[in-house]
């Protein structure tokens, strides 16, 4: 069964408090040199052979992502 990956990220203009928390934690752990962190979500979908990328995109914009605040990218094959 083919696997399709959908990555969902907050739009750049939307504040990402979770990314900020990670960014704040890194120097405390001794990791210097990270300028910015954005946290997103990765969805792995096992789909039937006939699944089209267009349908995956519809799945992403209907449920996986909220297009008001998020962007998504579909990775196939």
């Amino acid at each position: 069964m083919p696997r399709v990956v959908v990555d969902v990220m907050l739009k750049p203009e939307i504040l990402d408090p979770q990314g900020q928390a990670i960014l704040g934690a890194l120097p405390r752990l001794g990791f210097d040199g990270v300028r910015a962190v954005r946290q997103g979500k990765r969805f792995e979908l096992d789909v039937v052979d006939e699944m089209t990328e267009q349908t995956v995109r519809r799945i992403a914009e209907t449920l996986l992502a909220n297009p008001v605040i998020e962007e998504f990218t579909v990775h196939t094959g």
């Binding site: 907050l10 408090p17 928390a21």
Partner: peptide
């Protein structure tokens, strides 16, 4: 309704 609600800024 327009817009969305996200995690509180102060976490």
């Amino acid at each position: 309704l327009p817009g969305a609600l996200i995690r509180n800024a102060q976490r």
